[in-house]
Simulated scan of single mutants.
Amino acid sequence: MTATRWMTWIGGATMLGALVLAVCVFLMGGQPVLRAWFVAVLTLGAVPVGCLALLITNHLLRRDVFLARVLEAGCYGLWPLAVAFLPIALFPGAIYPWTAPEFRPTGALQEVWLDSTWFGLRAVLYFAVWLGCAMLLIREDRVVAPGDRRTGTAVAAAMLYAATISFAGLDWCMTLNPEFASSGYGWMMAAHQVAAALGFAVFADDLLTDDPEPPAVVRGLMIGGVLIWAFFAYMEWMVIWSGNVPAMASWYLDRDGGVWPSLRWVVALLMAAGVAGALLVPLWPRTRLVRLAALCILVGQLLEGVWNLLPAFGPATLAQVALFLLSMLTVGGALAVVFLKALATRPPEADQEDAVGAAVGPA
């Protein structure tokens, strides 16, 4: 099936999903639909934001180290992600407990920070920074050979990304429980996004290329991405447990019942399978083992996003799960269409040097 036909089918499924969600808003009210939409947007949004972090890394190293074509196409997903976030920015009262009239801030900072208007304006700032950085780096790819790049743009992008992703993690996820406070939560979210983007990029690249064995640097990045995520996830729990702070422990207590402990074990097993697969690729170089390893990492990190977000809204009901899956279909379809379209307009790495040469002109 051609890319155009794929986009047509996926686009049709996306529009159908959006229509069904609109009907659900009419029948069930806005709050349950918006909560499911919120979880889907932040779960799938880990991929394009993580692609931006990896693209910045490529440019800091001043050469196309890995997966440049896929990462650039993945960054274009920031556009539909920004549009999908609009309902969340406009109606935070359906999601966050700090918007309730009975909420009482515990300090002056909370009183200023936890404000619906400022919440929306900060979201606009985050997406403006991410989109601006992504488009500047992609434009540089089109006109500058990898070895001739200056690192100034990438350094500025890295600094802006580091600041905004930390605050976005606090804004969007940590304030689901206003009693919970952690200075490292934003970095844990960033590690989660990078691991998800690595799984996605390696899986997509393996589907697009004929080389069954990726470069060693790609397998090393897969393993490193999982280990960094595991470090932040474990240390977050360890610091709270060793500090014995009941208010901070409430974040984990909300995820201690129902299906959530089992889901956490599934995530851990998938991450372990991804690392094992990446390590074993040289032993079975013709088996496409890397594709399975990348898929394990991607699925594991998507489930990690669900584990982080969905328990904040109480025990999972059948209706809530159905709305979430429908939202995942709609948001994921929009991201997939943009990704395929961007991929079709970006020449493969083998043709990229000719494209850059044509843009720059004769030496």
Rank of each mutant, 00 (worst) to 15 (best):
A272E: 03
L326W: 10
A358G: 00
G120L: 08
L131N: 02
G132E: 04
F200C: 09
D354N: 12
A108N: 11
Y252M: 09
L289G: 14
V331Y: 01
V23T: 08
A230W: 08
I56M: 14
C173P: 00
G184N: 14
W118N: 05
L280M: 12
A272L: 15
R255K: 11
S116I: 00
P315V: 01
V226H: 06
G332A: 02
H59M: 05
P315F: 06
T330R: 05
A128Y: 03
T153C: 09
V275L: 08
G132W: 08
A195R: 04
L21E: 07
W307M: 01
L309R: 00
P101W: 08
T175R: 10
V25F: 10
V39E: 00
T153H: 10
L54M: 14
C133K: 01
G120D: 06
A82M: 12
G120R: 05
I10D: 05
V47M: 14
P87E: 11
L329A: 15
L280C: 13
F180H: 14
D211T: 09
A82R: 10
G258E: 11
V356W: 04
R35K: 12
Q320R: 13
G107Y: 08
L335V: 05
P32D: 10
A249N: 12
A100K: 15
F200D: 02
